[in-house]
């Protein structure tokens, strides 16, 4: 390659000297990630990318838009998000209206990857249907019927959705059941251990406890082991008590916001956290851990300054009626909306 580059340099004919029009035609075929890199190659490339708006970073799933939470014995997934005030974009909703007909119950969100969800639903005949959907653009695709469950009836963790619109418009589904191993892999560790890679490498005791963990399954164990509870409790944390009202609509709590733009309205110093803490997920790009305090209150813990921000109420309004015991959160996903056109979104 170096020899080729040398030759190109000596003849003066290389991709480096393409006219703007032609360069734009080449660059516009690159996926967003390589466009972002190409932008830094030289001024001419940057100008071409910017002037023609080839890179639409605002459409990419780069910031959290909410948290999907699955409560044990609760029939729907709960979506915790800031109510949309933007007139530019439609509000993100988990309501049924964009789901295909025949869905009787609100589906569980099984997995999330960069703005695209894998959800379960039950049809009229009680049959399980699986969908891949994008709540931001309301694109939805019904997956072929799932194979009958094997001996192990617990099929909750056996599918994994992989999607990275910065690299490819295609999504992948990975089935981890042993007998379906042929569709397995290659596992992309970057995606699977997404939140782990984003954890800052620090020497602080509280962070070390987490970065030492390697298996994704142990996320909850880490919090239940009291690492975080202890450390946060001992901090002289500042709280904001912006008690967001929990509005319940169609089973969705639209209560709070995840963005740290939220004004810290009140500071209640000297208060300690009560109850048990559980990790809901990690901010994909910032040093923030989202926590649940006794499955009632959502918290954002800023690792940088040990501040705790209250997101609002998580607890589903009907939870007491539906299930009075064994109340717990069994999974949660940080949701990053993706606004890219779905016309190319294929399996």
């Amino acid at each position: 390659m170096d020899l080729q580059a040398e030759a190109a340099r000596s003849t003066g004919l290389s991709v480096a000297v393409l006219p703007d029009d032609v360069l734009a035609d080449v660059l516009r075929r690159l996926s967003p990630r390589w466009l972002a890199v190409s932008r830094c190659v030289c001024k001419a490339w940057c100008d071409v990318v910017d002037a023609r708006r080839l890179l639409r970073a605002e459409l990419l799933p780069l910031s959290p838009g909410g948290i999907f939470i699955n409560f044990n014995n609760y029939d729907i997934s709960v979506f915790l998000a800031r109510p949309s005030t933007s007139a530019v974009r439609p509000s993100i909703s988990g309501k049924r209206e964009y789901l295909p007909d025949g869905i009787q119950s609100w589906p569980d969100v099984r997995d999330h990857c960069n703005g695209v969800l894998l959800v379960d639903g039950y049809g009229v005949a009680g049959d399980c249907r699986e969908y891949v959907l994008n709540p931001a653009t309301r694109w939805c695709s019904l997956l072929p019927p799932c194979p009958p469950p094997l001996v192990d009836m617990n099929t909750m963790y056996d599918k994994c959705l992989l999607y990275d619109p910065t690299i490819s418009p295609h999504y992948q589904l990975h089935d981890s059941r042993p007998r379906h191993g042929k569709v397995l892999g290659p596992w992309i560790l970057h995606d699977v251990n997404y939140y782990y890679e984003k954890m800052p490498k620090r020497d602080d005791d509280d962070v070390e406890a987490l970065t030492d963990e390697e298996r994704p399954e142990s996320i909850q164990e880490a919090s239940e082991g009291g690492m975080f509870a202890q450390n946060i409790g001992n901090e002289d944390s500042m709280y904001d008590s912006d008690d967001s009202t929990a509005g319940q609509e169609s089973g969705f709590i639209s209560a709070a916001q995840v963005d740290e733009k939220l004004a810290w309205s009140k500071k209640l110093n000297g208060k300690t956290l009560s109850g048990y803490l559980q990790i809901l997920g990690f901010h994909p790009y910032k040093e923030i851990v989202f926590l649940s305090e006794s499955i009632t209150r959502g918290l954002a813990y800023h690792l940088k300054n040990s501040k705790v921000q209250i997101l609002g109420n998580l607890y589903p309004a009907r939870y007491d009626q539906v299930s009075s015991n064994e109340q717990l959160i069994w999974s949660s996903f940080i949701y990053t909306p993706c606004w890219q056109s779905d016309k190319d979104l294929t399996k």
Binding site: D2, R9, A16, S38
Partner: peptide, 13 residues
């Protein structure tokens, strides 16, 4: 590739 590697590969000065 990084921007620098792209420059080298594509024959930029």
């Amino acid at each position: 590739k990084s921007p620098m590697e792209i420059r080298r590969t594509l024959g930029f000065p």
